[in-house]
């Protein structure tokens, strides 16, 4: 039974996407990697639920899709 929300759940999808790319705009690839790591850790804790996190990891790992 899937628990990860894969339908649209954003309150403002365009604004989030713009903010995400903006925050990376001036960064080196190394710093972007650091930022992404911090972001993942913060969001993962906010979600908390192990099943949701594992489902997200599983989909994220399907790089060919």
């Amino acid at each position: 039974m899937s628990k990860l929300i894969t339908e649209n759940h954003f309150s403002d999808a365009d604004a989030f996407y713009a903010a995400l790319t903006d925050v990376h705009r001036e960064l080196s690839t190394a710093d972007s990697e650091r930022l992404n790591a911090r972001l993942i850790l913060l969001l993962a804790n906010h979600i908390g639920d192990k099943q949701v996190l594992l489902e997200a990891l599983d989909i994220a790992a399907q790089l060919e899709q």
Partner: peptide, 22 residues
């Protein structure tokens, strides 16, 4: 990348209690 996650976990842990559990 494991090292990046490890180091950022440690940096976050200084300010945010959740990261201490990692």
């Amino acid at each position: 990348i494991s090292r990046v996650f490890r180091d950022e976990t440690l940096r976050l842990a200084k300010h945010y209690p959740f990261a201490r559990s990692l």
